[in-house]
Structures are given as structure tokens and as C-alpha cells.
């Protein structure tokens, strides 16, 4: 079973696109979502994101992501509802009121975050991290050190999640009840576990750095990678679509 942000093999159009095209599309798509507050446009963007997930068979992963983003965005939405007194008054508060505008702003935030997150996360599920880092070095001329740092960070996320799971299991076996007493108790019990996680993270990254160093990490240049990442018609079309989406978002903000 694949973990969080781990590549899932496949042969869909998204799998076959140039990694740079996917990355550029995802970034421009996310920027477009943040450039406009037009709810209809954001709903279309969200539908497009879900459509992309369906097209490459990543609906299970996307639903998991949407659930996680929903938790975060609902917290933001509640803050917005309580602190943005706009529109027709619905409920009086000691410091202002909750209006129809507050609810609209909160809902827009949820849709915006969900829409912006999907292509960014899908990029990792349909692209090998090595391809992603090598292609940004080859095509965008990003220094390999930065690309490697980025790739290592992504690579270590599931590793650390797995470590944390192991640490929690070890403590559960010693009688710690993580499933009792609600979220506050869970956080209270988990805080001390950050120490072993941090220690194991530092040990792992240190070992990885030494292993890379002894295998000539510093000798690597842009020419070292043998694999080429040519931009084909479909890749250029994807970038053009992303630019068009961004332009539409900017126009909608400027005109409405």
C-alpha cells in the first residue's frame, strides 16, 4: 500500500506528462485559486481537480487529502465567520455579527483551499520524486542541491510518519491510551513522543547526508543525469491551459 505523497505507478495522461509541466500547472492552478474570490470559478476549479484525480485513478488518495484539508480549512472558516462581519446580519456577537457575507467568505475559503491543494498533491502521486527533482534540474536549471533537498524532504515525509506510527505503537504497548479522552489528551500524550521522532529524524538525515557525501554528491552537475525531459505538445498545452486559468482568475478579480 502506498503512503502519503508516495508515487503510485500508472499509465494515465497525468502520469505520462513531463514532470515540469505538471509542477508548473499545479503551481499556476494554486495561484489562480488564490487570485480570485469568485465562488463559481473556484467551484469549477475544484471540479477540475476532482476530474484530474478521477482520470488518473487517485480518487481514494484525493478524498483522504480533501478530508485533511477540510479539517484545516474549517478551522479557518470558523475564524472568518467570527471575525468578518459582512452582508446581511444573521447572528449578533459581542464584538460584531455573523452575516451572509461571513458565511460566503468562509465557504469560499474552504472551496479555495480544497481546489488549490488537489493538483499540488496529485503531482506527487503521479510523478516519481526523482523524476521531479531531475527534471527541474535539467529543464528549469535549478541547482541540484536544492532539488535534492526538496526531493529528500518529500521522501522523508512517509518515513517520518511511519516512524511516528512505530513510536506510538511502542508506547501503546506500554499502556499509553491514545484513543481515550479526546483530542486534547491525544495531543498531551503525543507531545513527549516528538523527542524520539526528532532524534530518529536527525539520525536518519545525518546518515543520508553522509551516504550521499561518500558517493560523490558534490560532484553532481546538471549534465550528470542521463535521462532527458523533453517538452512535448501535450506538456506545452498543459502549461498554456494553466496560464489561461491564471489569466481568467486575474480578469475575474479585476472585472467583478
Amino acid at each position: 500500500m502506498n503512503g502519503f505523497l508516495e508515487y503510485v505507478p500508472g499509465d494515465s495522461l497525468l502520469h505520462r506528462l513531463n514532470p515540469v509541466a505538471k509542477l508548473v500547472f499545479a503551481v499556476l492552478f494554486a495561484i489562480a485559486c488564490f487570485c480570485t474570490g469568485n465562488l463559481a470559478f473556484l467551484c469549477v476549479m475544484l471540479a477540475a481537480g476532482i476530474g484530474m484525480a478521477v482520470s488518473c485513478g487517485m480518487m481514494r488518495q484525493t478524498l483522504g487529502l480533501m478530508k485533511a484539508v477540510a479539517v484545516f480549512s474549517i478551522i479557518l472558516a470558523v475564524l472568518l465567520i467570527l471575525t468578518t462581519p459582512t452582508g446581511d446580519k444573521l447572528v449578533d456577537l459581542p464584538w460584531g455579527y455573523i452575516g451572509t457575507g461571513s458565511l460566503l467568505a468562509a465557504f469560499t475559503t474552504i472551496v479555495r483551499l480544497e481546489a488549490a491543494a488537489i493538483p499540488l498533491f496529485l503531482t506527487f502521486y503521479v510523478t516519481k520524486v526523482t523524476d521531479l527533482s531531475n527534471s527541474v534540474v535539467k529543464v528549469l536549471h535549478v541547482p541540484y542541491k536544492y532539488a535534492f533537498t526538496f526531493a529528500s524532504t518529500v521522501h522523508f515525509i512517509p518515513v517520518f510518519m511511519n516512524d511516528m506510527k512505530g513510536i506510538m505503537e511502542a508506547q501503546t504497548a506500554r499502556g499509553v491510551e491514545f484513543d481515550q479522552g479526546g483530542i486534547v489528551n491525544k495531543v498531551r500524550l503525543m507531545v513527549p513522543l516528538c523527542v524520539p521522532l526528532l532524534v530518529s529524524s536527525v539520525r536518519k538525515t545525518n546518515s543520508a547526508a553522509i551516504a550521499a557525501e561518500v558517493r560523490g554528491f558534490n560532484l553532481r552537475t546538471r549534465e550528470s543525469g542521463y535521462k532527458q525531459y523533453p517538452m512535448r505538445g501535450a506538456d506545452i498545452a498543459v502549461v498554456v491551459i494553466a496560464i489561461a486559468l491564471l489569466a481568467t482568475a486575474i480578469c475575474l478579480t479585476a472585472l467583478l
Partner: peptide
């Protein structure tokens, strides 16, 4: 946990 003690392969999972 009161009846069965469990030693993990990696002590770093256990020590906190």
C-alpha cells in the same frame, strides 16, 4: 500491557 510486556526490535521506538 499489564499482562504482556513487549520489547520492540528498535529501542529508539520505545525510549521517549
Amino acid at each position: 500491557a499489564r499482562r504482556v510486556g513487549f520489547l520492540f526490535q528498535n529501542p529508539d521506538s520505545q525510549i521517549c
